[in-house]
Amino acid sequence: MEVRTIKVFTTVDNINLHTQVVDMSMTYGQQFGPTYLDGADVTKIKPHNSHEGKTFYVLPNDDTLRVEAFEYYHTTDPSFLGRYMSALNHTKKWKYPQVNGLTSIKWADNNCYLATALLTLQQIELKFNPPALQDAYYRARAGEAANFCALILAYCNKTVGELGDVRETMSYLFQHANLDSCKRVLNVVCKTCGQQQTTLKGVEAVMYMGTLSYEQFKKGVQIPCTCGKQATKYLVQQESPFVMMSAPPAQYELKHGTFTCASEYTGNYQCGHYKHITSKETLYCIDGALLTKSSEYKGPITDVFYKENSYTTTIK
């Protein structure tokens, strides 16, 4: 009895394709271990004539594949690729409408935090270190965002349907971005203890939790000093293409032309909904596939993004 075979390709990165001759009487799992086709788990399936010449994702289970996976995804987590594939199996079914010149995501599976993050990423200057993220990001900007969303979920250790947080998501993504040249110098002034300067680099240099107003941050924000008295913390120097200011959701007025974009969060910790506000020729609110415009805006804002380049204080 002759062994019926077909020729397929296996890959971990969709760049390096490895030619395989597979036995049609055995499952993919018996031949390769966990195997995925377009995100779908085909591990328990036997090869079919229609699979001839198709590319299958496999887990990096030998040295060659491990090197290829690390170079593309910059992670050695053995569960990463499987999590990416199972997320992709959902995100490829989502709709990605162009809204006001940006790629958004039609609401499904509690994905409003991903839509808000995706919209924000198209408006701030950011370059990702893992080629996987950078490639998928370019495709997302062009309207094909399924891979990018699935990668975000995998890097953030999230599953489809789980509630997510924009600030946490951005923080994970910033860790995989090139923020080497970003720098922030802060000064804390206390009447009792004097003053202390701190220099922050990388992710810490672009994120701040405690106030939404970048102007206020430049002037000074009140913080408790270690001595128990009130101290003032203010920005001395900022070198970065953008800054992200966050605070627990509270009524906040966004003035046209003073910011790049913002995240609105309605609801409580267990259950809520994100919308995205962007400042173009007027203010726009993007909620999944829905767009509304207004000249002014007041609502429960939790993150505001500002364009920056270089700032030095005039406070002496």
Rank of each mutant, 00 (worst) to 15 (best):
Q175H: 12
V304S: 03
L235Y: 03
S240L: 02
L121F: 08
G143E: 01
F259W: 08
D165V: 03
E204N: 08
E308A: 02
P300F: 15
A40G: 13
M24T: 11
F148A: 07
K280E: 05
N309F: 07
Y297L: 02
I277Y: 01
M209R: 08
A205D: 07
K233H: 11
S246W: 04
P248Q: 08
S213E: 04
P47I: 03
D63T: 10
E264C: 01
P47M: 03
Y284C: 14
G194M: 03
K280P: 03
A154D: 04
R4E: 15
L133H: 03
L283A: 03
F148E: 01
H256V: 15
L102Q: 09
S240F: 02
L291C: 10
A132P: 06
S79Y: 06
G164C: 04
T192F: 11
G101R: 01
H74E: 08
I286T: 11
I315S: 15
S79G: 13
H18Y: 12
M26S: 14
C193M: 07
T211A: 08
R184L: 04
Q20G: 12
L65Q: 14
F305R: 00
T55N: 09
L163G: 03
T258Y: 05
F259S: 02
Y265C: 08
N49T: 12
I277N: 08
N100W: 15
A247P: 10
F259R: 02
K95T: 15
E296C: 13
A87H: 00
Y138S: 15
T103F: 09
E144Q: 07
V42W: 14
I286L: 04
V12L: 07
Q20V: 12
E264N: 04
I301T: 00
C112N: 05
P34M: 15
W107V: 00
A69Y: 14
Q175E: 11
R139L: 12
T35S: 11
A205Y: 00
S79C: 10
Q31P: 08
Y214R: 04
K93H: 14
N178Y: 07
F217C: 02
S240I: 00
T11V: 08
H48A: 14
W94H: 00
T199K: 03
L119P: 00
Q134F: 07
Y234E: 05
G228E: 04
A140W: 04
Q20T: 11
H74W: 11
T55K: 10
F242P: 08
H90M: 11
S263F: 07
Q20D: 07
G143T: 04
C182E: 01
M245D: 02
D287M: 09
H276F: 15
T27W: 15
Y72I: 07
T232H: 01
C227P: 05
K298R: 13
S50R: 12
E264Y: 06
D41C: 09
H276Q: 04
N16S: 09
K191A: 14
F80L: 05
N61W: 10
G299A: 06
D13V: 04
K316V: 15
K307Q: 11
G257E: 02
P47E: 02
P130E: 11
Y84A: 04
C193I: 03
Y28C: 06
K92H: 08
H256G: 05
Q270F: 08
D62Y: 10
E144S: 12
T198F: 15
F174E: 07
D13K: 00
G210E: 01
V189S: 12
T199D: 00
L179V: 11
L59T: 12
F9D: 10
A262I: 07
G33V: 08
I124R: 04
T258C: 10
D41R: 07
Q251S: 10
K54I: 13
E71D: 11
L121H: 04
K307S: 12
T211Q: 06
A69E: 08
T55H: 09
G257N: 06
H90Y: 11
S295T: 10
A140H: 02
Y208C: 03
K95N: 15
Q197L: 09
S171L: 13
L121P: 05
V3I: 12
G39R: 07
E281T: 00
D303L: 04
C156I: 10
P78C: 10
G33N: 01
T260S: 06
Y72V: 05
R141P: 03
L59P: 07
Y306L: 09
T159D: 11
A145I: 05
A40L: 14
Y214N: 01
N157K: 14
P300I: 12
L153M: 10
G299E: 00
A40T: 14
R139C: 12
P248A: 14
A289K: 04
N16K: 15
S79L: 11
T11S: 11
W107K: 07
C149I: 11
D180I: 09
L283R: 02
K54E: 11
L65A: 10
L235I: 09
Y297H: 05
Y306Q: 09
D13Y: 11
T278F: 07
